[in-house]
Each structure stands twice: as C-alpha cells, then as structure tokens.
Amino acid sequence: MTGAKLVLMRHGQSLGNEANLFTGWNDLDLSANGHEEARRAGRLMRHHGFRFDAAHSSMLKRTIHTLHHCLDELDQSWLPEYRSWRLNERHYGALQGLNKDDTIARYGREQVQQWRRSFDVTPPAVKPDSPRHPGNDPRYASIPRCDLPCAESLAMTMKRVLPYWQDTLLPALRQGRSLLVVTHGTVMRALISHLDGLSPEETQTLEIPTGTPLVYEMDDTGNPEQSHYLEPSDIILGDTPPPF
C-alpha cells in the first residue's frame, strides 16, 4: 500500500499579511492577491494530476477559503473536509492585530524578533476574560478551556499540532490515502520540523511561502521519502487548466 501523498500548503496571502499585522487566531480573510494565489495553487495541482482522498484545514477562514478555491480548481469539491483548532496559526497573544512595524517601534527590533522567531519565547498573553481569548469564541466552545492558548511560542505550537499529526493525518497516510492540508506558516514549520527531523534552530528559520503546495511522497509506514514545492509554471497560470 504505497503512493500516498501529503500536500501541505500555507493559505494564500491574507488581509493580515497584506497589512503587515500579527494575525494569529484573528479571523481575517484572504486579500485579492490571496484569492488568486489559492486558485493558482489549485490549477497547479490539477496540472500535475493530484487526486486526494480528504482535505484538512484550520478553523480560520483564510485556510477554509484557500482550500475551497483549490478544490474548485481541482474539480474535487466533493471531498470530505475536516477542520481542527490544532491546525490554527500560532496564537500571538496580545500582539494579535498589531502592526509589526509599529510593534518594533514600541518594543525594539530585537524583542519583536524574539517573539516572532525564537523557539521557546512566548509573546505577551491575552487575559482569560478578554474577548480576544479563544475560550470566548463560540467556534471553540467544544474544546476544554484549559487547552486553548492565551499566547504561544513556536515550541508550544508544535506541541499543540503534533497530536493531530499522530491521531488523524498519519493513520490516513498509512492506509494509502492522499491528503491536502491547508494551514498556516507556523503550523507548517511544526509539521516540516517533525517530518524532516529538524533542530529547533533550523525550524525557527524556515520561510514558508503563501499559496505554494509542498508535496511529501510517503512510504507505506507514513514516513516521507522525498519532498518538494510545486513551482508555478506559465503553462498552468491561464484561466483554463488542462484536463486530468
């Protein structure tokens, strides 16, 4: 039972990316460019003949809308979809919604860089009674409040993401099922770090492009054999993708 593929993809450019914000769990949509990035990624996967058995996303609209664009372009909108808070972006705590340049001006570049990219430094937390705490958002009502973050480091995000890999994604891959997972930059760092056996130092320097599929070819035990990004091609950037 071989040939399963895992495609990981960061959502298309969001309004938060466009405005240079700490977005985190703030539920901002895609920018106009992000919508096109998502459609282009779907056309690219269709051009290469990708067929999936299931699709996964976070509970934030920028991944859900990216996924739907991809499935529309793939002509696979009928696929079962699964959403999980464990695939949400890193929670940036009290930084969420702030402009990154303004935050640098207030706290200094070194401090902000530590909050953004160090492995185990946590940004300032939101208060449990804050409207910005996920425990006060109805979409997370079924999740124990003690599991929901007030702020996360990269290490904490990895700890939150890996149970979804172990309990949901890996068993499906071991059954030979190919999966499309649309998520966020920090979540992709966590998954890539685990799959590729990276050190904390290597993990925190990973740069993850928006709207670009990362393909893992899996063996029958669910271990990666090779991986590569699908690079855009002039052949498939037009409005009419070639048929399967």
Rank of each mutant, 00 (worst) to 15 (best):
N88I: 01
G49C: 10
L180A: 10
W85C: 02
G97C: 03
D220K: 14
D147N: 10
T157W: 14
T63F: 00
S178C: 05
E89M: 10
S227C: 13
M9Y: 00
S142V: 13
C146W: 12
D29L: 07
L191E: 02
Y229D: 15
T2C: 14
S193R: 04
L95W: 04
L60M: 10
P131S: 12
T63G: 02
Q113F: 11
S84H: 00
H194I: 01
E231S: 14
G34T: 01
A190C: 11
I192E: 04
K61W: 01
L87E: 00
E225D: 15
P243L: 10
L21C: 12
L237R: 10
P123E: 03
S77E: 10
P171E: 04
S227I: 15
N17H: 09
D120H: 06
I192H: 06
P134V: 02
P144F: 07
D75V: 11
I236C: 15
S14N: 05
D239G: 13
V181M: 00
L95Q: 04
D239T: 12
Y216A: 00
A55R: 01
R46K: 07
R116Q: 09
I64G: 01
L15Q: 11
T168R: 08
P243K: 07
Y107G: 07
F22E: 06
G197D: 12
A41F: 05
T157A: 14
Y140R: 08
P232C: 04
P128Q: 11
T168H: 13
G222C: 08
D27E: 06
E201F: 11
L87F: 05
P213Y: 02
L6M: 05
K127V: 15
V126R: 00
K100S: 05
V215K: 01
M158F: 15
L173W: 08
R40T: 15
A94K: 03
T2S: 15
I192C: 07
G3H: 13
L191K: 06
Y82N: 07
E152M: 08
V187L: 09
A190H: 02
S57E: 01
L191V: 04
L60Y: 02
R10T: 06
G12S: 06
Q13I: 08
R139F: 15
L170T: 11
W85Y: 08
E81T: 06
T221N: 09
P171N: 04
S84W: 00
K127L: 10
